[in-house]
Design a protein around this nucleic acid. Sequence first.
DNA 1: GGTTTAGGCCAC
DNA 2: AAACGTGGCCTAAACC
Length: 435
Amino acid sequence: MKSSFNTQLANWLLDPDGASSPIEDAEVLKKKLFKEDLMKVYEEVELPLVQVLKDVEAVGVFIDTKALQTLSRGLERQLTVLVKKIYKEAGEEFNINSPKQLLDIFSRKLKLHLRSTNVDKIAQFKDKHPLVGLVLQYRELAKVRSTYVEPLLTLTDKGSRIHTTFIQTGTATGRLSSRNPNLQNLPKESQWADDVRRAFIASPGYTLVSFDYSQVQLRILATVARDSRLIEAFQNGEDIHKLTASRIFNVSLEKVTPQMRRVAKTLNFGIVYGMGPRALSRESGLSFIEAQNFIDSYFLEFSKVKQWQEDLTQEVSSKGYVTNLAGRKRYFTEPINFRAAINTPIQGLEADILKRAMIQIHDVFSRRKEWQTKVRLLLPVHDELLFEIQNDTIQEAVPLLTTLMESAYTLAVPVKVDVKMGKNWATLTPYKKKA
DNA sequence: GGTTTAGGCCAC
DNA sequence: AAACGTGGCCTAAACC
Ligand SMILES: Nc1nc2c(ncn2[C@H]2C[C@H](O)[C@@H](COP(=O)(O)OP(=O)(O)OP(=O)(O)O)O2)c(=O)[nH]1
Ligand SMILES: [Mn+2]
Ligand SMILES: [Mn+2]
């Protein structure tokens, strides 16, 4: 009766898709973990992480409820106006939230006979048909209110803190997920993103500090694919997202905006994980032919990446599973999703890196009295850790946290973390160490 | 009344 | 034929 053994973790490591039926017998599970080389990640990562996550959940994030309430009322008012405009423009009342009814309205009123109503499909008509633009505005407002503002208000506790629940055994790659509420998908780009994030504030006397790994999956890719072009790029401090942005938008590196870089991020990972020319053309604005050429030259430039993908495709076909550098494993059955197989070891190692960093940081900061209350881990976001740090401790703690994160796992390229800080989550500015 | 599924969209 | 991947949560609609 070893109550210390965590059967849920073990079963998940053995089959993170949960396709096979779970095993209850701890001794059987242990043998399997050994046999499949999963004991290391179980003992060094997942088991110690349980307590870390408990502590993080208990701390919670301080919320400016006043700001959220104000936002809520503003959204409510604007939605009312918008709904009336939409009904007037459409000439009748209907449920705007129903894609089915929307298709019907578009068909009858605008003579637009569409198959779906998602933003990519209908945005092109918004100049010709005011109704389309109004509907898209409505979608943005309704989304932010129903998915973020109202649930956050409901879930904020009496002490004005919000506590998510982390799911440690929920993903197929090894990542964490967050629910009730999901704090890992708060808006960042949309019109209302800043209003929502402004409500996430530091406790009095503290500052929010965010540590985010730079281009993390590209650095992992450079390592696993042994691609000399990528490796040299990172050794030279290059920013591949920015480089791709400058090529796509045809501007110099200095003229790449944060928005352009964000688009390029999607393109870089899209291409690496099997995006086709049609999707690339849609995401980038390039023509289909240009998109095709871009993909071809991409894999010419990063030629070892292509080779690695082909090797991995062979491997998953013969073995029926893939593993990452930390030993984490995922099984694939016919028909094999090769794009998912290619993504898995890379996304999975990202998770291992962040988890190891969290555990080390927890050992140093949360277990020691002199640090405990001064440095609080609030939230992991896949390759980012958000802390609140006591104001008089920042200069001391930030270099230490940075070093811990950058040395949590050794890659074939430098591992770099970008640090930003601020009083709320909307207005973080790059950390500059004081002279 | 409850559940499940689909379409849609937010993040990394 | 062509297909970036990993998640969670919203509403509507179909189902029990
Ligand atoms: N497949 C895929 N993975 C993504 C996408 N967006 C983000 N990711 C993954 C890969 C990233 O390395 C990782 C962390 O996201 P970040 O937003 O922090 O981007 P990244 O670290 O690459 O760049 P950064 O230097 O932090 O701006 O999440 C995407 O659109 N597709
Ligand atoms: Mn990052
Ligand atoms: Mn990130």
